[in-house]
């Protein structure tokens, strides 16, 4: 489903005299339906940048990202036009960031149900599904109609996770989603991820917490400074 070939990313900082900063180089791996690829390596080695390149928040410098959509059509995400990327994001790609960008003045329940409604799903069913997930993530019902900007860090992160998985993406990028969660909630998140995985979602995840990673990952790539990756 996903085939990454010799992907490299270098940042050129024109405002610092054209200085080049290498993020990662020659990374290749592939992910099949329902497969979880763990990405490991020390801080600053380019793990998040790799996920962002696949989601196209970053433009890869070199290499290809071949993605086959639900109809069997193949796209190269590193060079696909913006409109195609937006369409795929809307329908098939998911991304859980390290930090949640809160949409201001929209309640938690609206943010989550809105993600389904905007994809043309029934309003009432969307709200029910959002409530079900909020309950599973131990978010108190008194918060459901509050603005997430008032939530604690952990609550925001849980919302972030629900927001990404509620649409059941086919390919999901996870950037340390469990970093700020207590053990009980972490356990619940892992269960949710496993559920999604059994439904066939391919995932690429960055985790510093090796216990969680061992539970989830089918295979692992270890990023090494300046020389691509090693399968572990």
């Amino acid at each position: 489903m996903l085939n990454v070939v010799n992907l490299s990313k270098t940042f050129t900082m024109h405002i610092r005299g054209g200085k080049k900063i290498l993020s990662f180089k020659n990374v290749s791996f592939s992910a099949a339906k329902g497969e979880f690829i763990g990405v490991t390596g020390p801080s600053g080695i380019g793990k998040s940048s790799l996920l962002k390149c696949i989601y196209r928040t970053y433009l890869p410098t070199e290499g290809d990202i071949w993605y086959t959509d639900s109809t069997g059509k193949e796209y190269n995400l590193s060079s696909a036009d913006d409109h195609t990327v937006l369409k795929l994001r809307r329908n098939e790609l998911g991304y859980i960031s390290q930090f949640f960008h809160v949409i201001p003045r929209v309640s938690a329940l609206e943010i989550l149900s809105g993600a389904l409604i905007s994809r043309g799903q029934d309003r009432q069913a969307s709200i029910e599904r959002a409530k079900e997930l909020l309950e599973r993530m131990n978010i108190s019902p008194s918060l459901w109609d509050m603005f997430p900007s008032t939530f604690s860090g952990g609550e925001k992160q849980r919302l972030n996770i629900i927001h990404a998985i509620i649409t059941r993406p086919r390919l999901l990028m996870l950037d340390e989603p469990t970093a700020s969660l207590d053990p009980k909630t972490r356990h619940e998140v892992v269960n949710l991820i496993l559920e999604l995985k059994s439904e066939g979602t391919a995932m690429i995840g960055v985790f510093h917490d090796y216990d969680t990673l061992n539970k989830l990952a089918d295979s692992r790539i270890d990023l090494k400074e300046g020389r691509g990756c090693v399968y572990a």
Binding site: H14, K52, T57, Y58, L59, L86
Partner: peptide, 14 residues
Amino acid sequence: KGLTDQVLEDPQHA
């Protein structure tokens, strides 16, 4: 020109 998140997080032009 590009996706808004790309332009804001990984701008290419000086």
